[in-house]
Amino acid sequence: MKITITGATGFVGQNLTKYLKNSHCLTPVSLRNQNWTDNFNIDIDVIIHLAGKAHDTANTSNDSVYFKVNRDLTIQLFDVFLKSNIKDFFYFSSVKAVADTVDGVLFEDIDAKPLTPYGKSKFEAEEYLLKQTLPEGKRLFIIRPCMIHGPGNKGNLNLLYKVVEKGIPWPLAAFHNERSFLSIDNLSYLIETMIAKKDLSSGVYNFADDDALSTNDVVQLISMTLGQKPRLWSISSSFIKTVVKIGDILPLPLNSERLKKLTESYVVSNSKIKKALGIEKLPTSAKEGLIKTIRSFQ
């Protein structure tokens, strides 16, 4: 199978390339050059569109950049796909395209209410793709992953690791939550399985590990991996929320956006994709995947 991957130099792109390269012929492509369409190879079977502008937790990015990259480039690439003989188009959107916060469990049929420029740009791209008529023999897969992690990935998990590693008590234990994560191994497995399953229907699919975990669970996993005793402090949540407002003004490690990511509940269902692929369990459990990521920080 001949596959083109955009955003191949990013975290997901690098890992997906390693996973697929032994079974498929892969070609990375950059969309940064304004004339990329002139040299785009359409003699392929699958496009996996990963390239995009990630959510900026520091809120320093211009809103227009999200729409130019996440929406407009996706539209251009999809139009190339529609006019070609390429069979499959995978668009990596995000759960944030439809819900900034989740009450209960997030399923694919939720009424979209994106709140950030990142989420809105992803959703507007989805809207365009879904409104187009697919020629016979073509498939469109819109993937909505939750928080992706794996060896080499930085971000909030790495921040959490550094706190625990230094022996600093986790001060947010009073926040009780449940979060879905997505191991890069499970992501890669799902993509390869979807490509191979020729009778899989086009559609929107959530990607998440099988089980949700709390932030306190993650702190305990980090402590266990480091051979330390977990240190969880239950400081008043209202006090913490007041203090982090300072981080919204000054360059501190914790601000309101990061606090939200670390403590909110965000449970994502993966039942639709598992049913469609006829699998009961993903190969890597949520805890196994997190431990593998945590060990990579050492």
Score class of each variant (00 low, 15 high):
residue 99 A to S: 14
residue 125 A to M: 05
residue 120 K to Q: 15
residue 99 A to Y: 01
residue 183 S to H: 03
residue 115 L to E: 15
residue 109 D to H: 13
residue 169 P to D: 07
residue 125 A to Y: 08
residue 181 F to E: 10
residue 161 Y to G: 06
residue 86 I to A: 04
residue 101 T to L: 03
residue 142 I to L: 13
residue 106 L to W: 04
residue 139 R to E: 08
residue 185 D to N: 13
residue 119 G to R: 05
residue 150 G to P: 03
residue 130 L to Y: 06
residue 93 S to H: 09
residue 177 N to E: 11
residue 110 I to A: 09
residue 103 D to Q: 12
residue 153 N to C: 13
residue 95 V to K: 02
residue 162 K to M: 08
residue 109 D to L: 01
residue 177 N to M: 11
residue 120 K to T: 04
residue 96 K to T: 00
residue 107 F to R: 14
residue 173 A to M: 05
residue 105 V to L: 13
residue 141 F to D: 13
residue 162 K to R: 15
residue 155 G to Y: 03
residue 82 L to V: 05
residue 178 E to D: 08
residue 116 T to E: 15
residue 114 P to E: 12
residue 88 D to W: 00
residue 184 I to D: 09
residue 124 E to C: 07
residue 136 E to G: 01
residue 106 L to D: 08
residue 137 G to E: 13
residue 127 E to H: 03
residue 178 E to C: 01
residue 130 L to K: 15
residue 122 K to Y: 01
residue 150 G to Y: 01
residue 129 L to S: 10
residue 109 D to E: 15
residue 132 Q to W: 03
residue 89 F to C: 12
residue 175 F to M: 12
residue 136 E to S: 14
residue 97 A to M: 02
residue 90 F to S: 12
residue 116 T to D: 14
residue 96 K to S: 12
residue 100 D to V: 00
residue 172 L to N: 05
residue 112 A to Y: 09
residue 160 L to F: 06
residue 184 I to E: 05
residue 132 Q to V: 05
residue 177 N to P: 09
residue 155 G to I: 00
residue 81 F to W: 03
residue 104 G to V: 04
residue 93 S to L: 02
residue 98 V to D: 03
residue 142 I to V: 15
residue 172 L to E: 07
residue 126 E to S: 09
residue 97 A to F: 02
residue 100 D to I: 00
residue 100 D to A: 02
residue 81 F to Q: 04
residue 137 G to Y: 04
residue 166 K to N: 14
